[in-house]
């Protein structure tokens, strides 16, 4: 009898042990699967604030954004982004100002007239050659990013400061010399923002999210 019970208990113990192992395992598994599942569909998305520093791009003239747009305290001129990138509010591209515009100011600024960068600028002007600026934020050809819509929405409708609105994607350009990409500009990064609800304008409490069909951005 005793043997039997011992055997049984042995058996039960083994059983329990197995079951325990198994249960522990399956609890782990459940946890894993659910966390994988929800991570997969929700949490895996890149953080909107993530920085993804692009490569340094060598420009024909090292344009000092900080001098032009930077805070006055740091010696900047606090020029509005859209003073130069004037197309941003009415075109899908922000555009580089025509050389004419650079010269327009700089021919009256005698103090820096002889610095190497400005000399170079005038060389281009005299040769009537456009400066071969390189693209810093170069999206693939199948992507259509519309600056106008974003500027109209966030700067004009929602009254965000220009530098904040631009800086959301372009980073804090006013502290850079040559602009450098600071955000991933990946699809997930775009989408993460499009899925969020934003107030329609500065006053109302109504919110909407960005458009969600593929052809908004893909061509």
């Amino acid at each position: 009898m005793s043997m039997l019970s011992r055997r049984q208990s042995n058996c039960l113990l083994g059983e329990l042990l197995t079951m325990y192992c198994f249960l522990r395992f399956s609890i782990l598994l459940v946890g894993l699967i659910f966390s994988a599942g929800s991570y997969a569909v929700n949490a895996a998305q890149p953080l909107t604030t993530a920085d993804d520093l692009g490569p340094k791009v060598e420009q024909p003239i090292e344009f000092p954004h900080d001098r032009h747009a930077g805070d006055a305290a740091k010696g900047g001129m606090q020029i509005n982004c859209m003073y130069c990138h004037t197309y941003a509010r009415r075109s899908i591209v922000a555009g580089i100002p025509p050389l004419q515009k650079c010269i327009g100011c700089h021919q009256n600024i005698e103090s820096v007239r002889e610095t190497p960068r400005i000399k170079k600028l005038f060389e281009y002007w005299e040769a009537k050659k456009a400066v071969p600026w390189k693209k810093v934020h170069d999206l693939p050809d199948f992507v259509r990013f519309n600056h106008e819509r974003h500027i109209q929405r966030f700067v004009f409708a929602q009254n965000k400061p220009v530098q904040e609105a631009c800086g959301y994607c372009h980073g804090d350009v006013k502290t850079m010399t040559v602009a450098r990409r600071q955000k991933p500009l990946s699809m997930g990064w775009c989408v993460s923002c499009h899925q969020k609800d934003h107030p329609v304008d500065a006053t109302s409490t109504k919110t909407t999210h960005g458009p969600n069909d593929c052809w908004q951005c893909h061509k």
């Binding site: 692009g54 580089i96 025509p98 004419q100 009537k128 600026w133 693209k135 170069d138 990946s186």
Partner: peptide, 15 residues
Amino acid sequence: SVEDGKEFVTSYVQT
């Protein structure tokens, strides 16, 4: 993917 610094931006001398 995003490729920086590979292409040139169209810009004008005067417009």
